[in-house]
Design a protein around this nucleic acid. Structure first.
Lengths: 253, 253
DNA sequence: ATGAGTGTTGCAGGGAGTGCAACACGCCTG
DNA sequence: CAGGCGTGTTGCACTCCCTGCAACACTCAT
């Protein structure tokens, strides 16, 4: 919409890949060096990029601080956190909290497993949207039209033999998830990792977030993990109640 | 430098305080609504802001994902992390890693205390720069001129009776820290919390990061905490060695 | 020294962003 | 239901700000 801003913002993901010098930035933006320089300067003044001692640019600290502030302001996260901790204390496995936003699902909170063998994940990382249990719950609740549109647009990488293969299969799975009110991912992302997830709803019943328990099957089998479903659902419901009670106007997140 | 970009970027910290609608954004920027709208649209397209169901804007997920990616790419952090974990296993207290960047010191990694009573802090949060032990180490290593300039410019909030009161006192403290090669914060930020910190150096001997162990004095007295100084220094030195060995060109971070 | 490779700085032209005013919409009130 | 707010949105001229160029400064190699 705004050319200058558009270019400036395009620099950031570019630098996220790693530090780059002026020439590289200019090339990848397709603009003159002097133009890139001025954009970088503006970003620099705001602390969004940082200039290393070797003159190359990389993402700056302010960006990081901003993001932290943003995520801390998410109501659901704040409310859910103690519940996640309690669930973790109860079962010992990794507990995740995720939200949906603009074709992406991402973890906004996490409590680490207390077992030595842990699942790898990180807060802020976009989730494997076609297979993750939390993603299924969040997408299953979208309005029909949007759900179809999103499903069509997605890629369906075959992480494992049990990954969701394509849009129709995904939509079918979403229908099932929507019906039953909970979801699983049994080795669809990583062969040896299983998850079981439940939705968190706002006052209007819309799914605002989803939480899951994940564990590698060297620790517990899929069947054993499924026995945790009731406590996961109980926890999610408790969060829903608290969330609904506290927020007067229901936000999408 | 670039007006449009400048304005657009100013929106982000503004939204970090909380969601805002178009009018509020326009007012605080001092521009016409239509201008603000176009800036917000551009930010939106890049996923930096998100539009809630009530039409208000807040910071978007991409921002968060970007920041995570950025911090994961920091070499020091990657190298230091296992060492921090080991130190935590050894002593049980909260371990922090911090860097300096453009008049700010911020935590880039943290291992939580294993004691029930913990110090509050968060990754990405700017550190109380005039009192924190890690901040002292990072600032003490700046070139004389810059160090003075920064010290003059800072505020000196009196968090407690033992907080650094003003620039001269701070510079004196920095000189001492520089001399001895380690630093402490004994109740300068929170009355009941003590820290002991050591520097991490790059190939050229410049301080690139600092790490600390913190504990409330209900868990250990300041004196007891000081007995950990040798292991903190040992750990920091180990990180320094590994970091120097691995990075061919020394970066400021 | 000499050159290639950087990053940096005026400058003039024109395209891009700006503010205005008018419009569209939802929401409340009488 | 009409009317009146308070929003967010769009078209359109004007002009200002951004752009690309070319020349300059600087640091490394060889």
């Amino acid at each position: 919409m705004s050319q200058t801003v558009d270019r400036a913002l395009s620099i950031l993901p570019l630098l996220a890949e790693g530090p780059a010098d002026l020439g590289q930035v200019a090339d990848r933006l397709g603009v003159h060096k002097s133009t890139a320089l001025r954009l970088l300067r503006t970003l620099h003044e705001h602390g969004f990029v940082y200039r290393q001692s070797d003159q190359r640019y990389r993402l700056g600290a302010r960006l990081f601080a901003l993001a932290q502030e943003a995520v801390e302001n998410l109501d659901v996260r704040e409310i859910a956190h103690p519940h996640l901790v309690r669930l973790n204390e109860e079962c010992g496995h990794t507990v995740h909290l995720a939200v949906y936003e603009e074709n992406e699902v991402l973890y906004i909170d996490k409590v680490e497993s207390r077992y030595p063998v842990r699942m790898y994940s990180r807060i802020g990382k976009p989730v494997a949207i076609t297979v993750a249990a939390v993603a299924k719950l969040l997408l299953a609740d979208l309005p029909e039209a949007e759900r179809r549109a999103v499903a069509e647009k997605l890629d369906y990488p075959t992480y494992t033999s049990r990954s969701t293969p394509n849009a129709p299969a995904f939509l079918k799975e979403l229908a099932k998830v929507r019906e039953q009110g909970w979801a699983t991912d049994l080795g669809g992302h990583e062969e040896s990792i299983n998850c079981v997830a439940a939705p968190i709803r706002g006052t209007d019943g819309r799914v605002v977030a989803a939480m899951s328990v994940s564990a590698p099957n060297v620790v517990v089998t899929a069947d054993e993990l499924l026995t945790l479903l009731p406590s996961v659902r109980r926890t999610a419901d408790a969060v829903s109640r608290e969330y609904s009670g506290r927020t007067p106007a229901p936000d999408t997140v």
